[in-house]
């Protein structure tokens, strides 16, 4: 399942997509949990009883601000979350 967390507002579209099929047997040992400086990811049991990562509810409405520090303007050449997720489950839309 592709789960998109985020929003669209007047300034643009901000979604983090997680391919949960790649989370079920995570080959990166849940590295996303520690890679994100804001600790936005969490492991939950989804509606189909699979243990997958999601973006915490309280973070989904402020992605443009919370993720800004990890973008090139913040000094990063690649996003810590997508780099840590070696199976390639995490993507940013912006």
């Amino acid at each position: 399942m592709i789960a998109n967390y985020g929003y669209k507002d007047g300034s643009g579209e901000y979604y983090i997509s997680i391919d949960t099929d790649k989370c079920i047997d995570c080959a990166a040992d849940r590295a996303c949990l520690t890679a994100c400086p804001k600790h936005m990811f969490e492991i939950i049991t989804d509606d189909y009883d699979d243990e997958v990562a999601w973006v915490k509810k309280e973070c989904t409405r402020a992605l443009a601000y919370d993720c800004a520090g990890c973008k090139p303007a913040g000094g990063y050449t690649s996003l810590p979350c997508t780099t840590a997720c070696t199976p390639g489950a995490i993507k940013h839309s912006w």
Binding site: M1, I2, A3, N4, Y5, Y7, K8, Y15, Y48, R61
Partner: peptide, 12 residues
Amino acid sequence: GKVTNFLMNDKC
């Protein structure tokens, strides 16, 4: 009826 992709907008 199993979800394969979703997107939710509840900001506004």
